[in-house]
């Protein structure tokens, strides 16, 4: 039997919002340590890796590991039926072919349950090695979303250059070129407004802007986004999910031909 109860259904709604652009379906791998998801987008250029720890749930029970193949479009429709302040419970019998979502209003006066068919997805998992990144940038998630959106008007690629002074985002195309430089902030009082750069060595990499924009759908999950870069390895864009977990997007850098 698998049962996971979350007081804030808004977390699950935001997680779906964050992945449904990139993925049509994904497998939720549930074990006693929590729920994990790893899937590449259809073009196999980017990857989503999500982890929700069991201790972040109000109630979590997973008698036997269970992998639930979810159609994310259907799951989004079901989660739209939950109010933000509803309590959501996901549950499934062992080797079940359906999963049930239960939404309870705060005053328990309204309880809804939605049963969804599961899919058999034989998605392969990629091994992602532990990596020491040359540059790790932390900046306000809203700022990053704004930069990706603004620069995607200029070209289909964004060049991210990181030095110890700060990070520069550039794009060029038919209408012209654009550069946005963020200096490393000095003593800001609010952590979530800071721009920090941990640099082992300077890095300059080029990425497809449409994927970066898809990643920023996770902005509502966290005030801060973390970009990890090294020469010739995929970028990692990470958003924390409250105290319960994280969502990480991986994107292969473009190479000059």
């Amino acid at each position: 039997m698998f049962e996971a109860r979350l007081v804030q259904s808004s977390i699950l709604k935001k997680v779906l919002e964050a992945i449904k652009d990139l993925l049509n379906e994904a497998t939720f791998d549930c074990s006693d340590s929590g729920i994990q998801l790893q899937a590449m987008d259809n073009s196999h250029v980017s990857l989503v890796s999500m982890n929700l720890r069991s201790d972040g749930f109000d109630k979590y029970r997973c008698d036997r590991n269970i992998s639930m193949g979810m159609n994310l479009g259907s799951m989004t429709k079901i989660l739209k039926c939950a109010a933000n302040e509803d309590v959501v419970t996901m549950k499934a019998q062992d080797n079940a072919d359906t999963v049930t979502f239960v939404f309870e209003s705060p005053n328990q006066e309204k309880v809804s349950d939605y049963e969804m068919k599961l899919m058999n997805l034989d998605q392969e998992h990629l091994g992602i090695p532990e990596t020491e990144y040359a540059c790790v940038v932390r900046l306000p998630a809203g700022e990053f979303a704004r930069i990706c959106r603004d620069l995607s008007q200029f070209g289909e690629s964004v060049v991210i250059s990181c030095t110890k002074e700060g990070v520069k985002f550039s794009s060029a195309g038919d209408i012209g070129s654009a550069n946005i430089k963020l200096a490393q902030t000095s003593n800001v009082d609010k952590e979530e407004l800071a721009v920090t750069v941990e640099m082992q060595e300077p890095v300059t990499l080029t990425f497809a802007s449409r994927y970066l924009n898809s990643f920023t759908k996770a902005t509502s999950l966290s005030n801060v986004v973390q970009l990890s870069m090294s020469p010739d390895v995929p970028l990692v864009v990470e958003y924390r999910i409250g105290e319960i977990g994280h969502i990480r997007y991986y994107l292969a850098p473009k190479i000059e031909d």
């Binding site: 990857l47 392969e124 091994g127 292969a252 473009k254």
Partner: peptide, 14 residues
């Protein structure tokens, strides 16, 4: 212009 590699060029399926 530049080429867009796949993730499998960097990470191995397991």
């Amino acid at each position: 212009n530049n080429l867009q590699p796949f993730l499998k060029d960097f990470y191995v399926p397991h």
